[in-house]
Design a protein around this nucleic acid. Structure first.
Lengths: 250, 250
DNA sequence: CAGTGGTCTAGACCACGCT
DNA sequence: GCGTGGTCTAGACCACTGG
């Protein structure tokens, strides 16, 4: 006999099995009323089971219907990302690191960048060693794969670093050696902090996620050769479509 | 005016505010009936709000009551952890890396290790380059802080590496140079993969977590100087009590 | 305007532990 | 026994959308 479980947990498992064995990404799931009838439970129980599957990222509700979502994992390598990113400036390459990674698995990348000046959020001010509320330049970036929002990567720069440099240029800028080199503050080392939590309502909106999805928040602080904190990148990576990879020498 | 939200979301926010401003860790929360009356909503709405707060890790239900849980973040540095771990073998130290980290913030660490031989799970077999189902040695470890389960760290070794070495010894073993050196397969490099997802029922049980908590799954594959995969460590770190840190040279 | 999912409620039953 | 949280249900109302 199977161990004792709640109807909701059992139903979630049945639906999960059914989805992974019989269905593929973007398939439309039956309506709540149909399933309630089919499995002999109330509509609320159906909804609770789907809530679980949505949190897992397996199902997403769009408008008036639920769809299967099985994303490929984007393997993100923060330890080599910036290094590879500079290749975009080499002759013959029009790939930044993200675009190159995505092209390598036969998919299409796109990015949307918005440049603004804002008071530094707490998290950023601390890491840039600025007073809370000091204005900073932020390049808010959304990276998509095959038209689906994949991750957010917001870069914050002190005004003293960004002013009068290509960092202030709107859009996805390409400059030889990269934005940081152009600012005269090439980065020598990074401090990366990863935390795991549920997506905030803002992130749910920007990435079109279900309401209760786990995300990785990756905060990279970059320092120049003089030891000055010159950039903070806050990356939000939904768990259902990211694997973060570091290679470490013992 | 505040933007339009559901009663559940509004209530969750009110309770969150109330908790972080007026309460402290381990305080007992009022019962559902009391809150339903106080806020003028049904008990189901109270429960939905608490479900959200439990997922965030702010509240935990124990037996017949809910308590505030505000954990300090354990700052885990996988890139230097193993190196520092070896200090346990230096004269005058009885600290491994975890115990030392925890002592440094004035708290008390404890660890529970169980050694068994099992068929390699898929994830492990692939990384150790073994056929699926090959038996491997696993050291299942739970690390606690101040008596609270904090993380799981299960280490898997190929039989050929572990046999006849202190790796097979039960309990929290201390050997000069570390377990890997004693096996003749000191690790030269690591490949770390981090994914984010909801805790599995097994993890919920082993770590005493609420049912819908996000965790980081950190899989470290260690290679010896000859390039052989000699160990896989699967660490499960609940998001509400961990910050993972890597320092990277550009 | 009928059907969908989103939300909320009242009420029921249960297991459990405390008084 | 009574109150707690855990679970489930039936039913209601809403907003939105496609026929």
């Amino acid at each position: 006999m199977a161990i004792e479980r709640t109807r909701t947990a059992e139903l979630a498992e049945k639906l999960r099995d059914r989805i992974v064995t019989d269905m593929k990404s973007d398939d439309k799931l039956p309506g709540e009323a149909v399933l309630a009838d089919e499995y002999g439970v109330s509509r609320e129980t159906i909804r609770r089971a789907f809530n679980r599957l949505e949190s897992e990222g397996l199902v997403q509700t769009v408008g008036r219907a639920r769809f299967v979502r099985l994303f490929p994992m984007y393997e993100w390598r923060p330890d080599t990302f910036e290094h590879r990113d500079h290749r975009r400036d080499e002759p013959g390459s029009n790939h930044d690191a993200f675009t190159g990674d995505v092209a390598a698995i036969g998919r299409e990348a796109s990015q949307y960048v918005e440049v603004t000046i804002v008071p530094a959020p707490d998290l950023v001010a601390q890491r840039l060693e600025l007073d809370q509320g000091t204005t900073v330049v932020v390049r808010k970036r959304r990276r998509d794969i095959d038209g689906t929002p994949w991750q957010l990567a917001d870069s914050y720069y002190p005004l003293s670093v960004a002013e009068g440099t290509p960092i202030m240029q709107p859009g996805d800028v390409t400059v030889p050696g990269g934005l940081m080199k152009a600012s005269g503050h090439e980065q020598a080392r990074f401090h990366d902090e990863i935390t795991v939590r549920l997506a905030t309502p803002e992130e749910v909106g920007r990435l079109d996620l279900p309401a209760t999805t786990p995300v990785a928040q990756h905060v990279r602080t970059g320092y120049d050769a003089a030891g000055m904190a010159v950039r903070v990148i806050v990356t939000i990576a939904p768990g259902d479509r990211h694997k973060i990879i570091y290679d470490v020498t013992a």
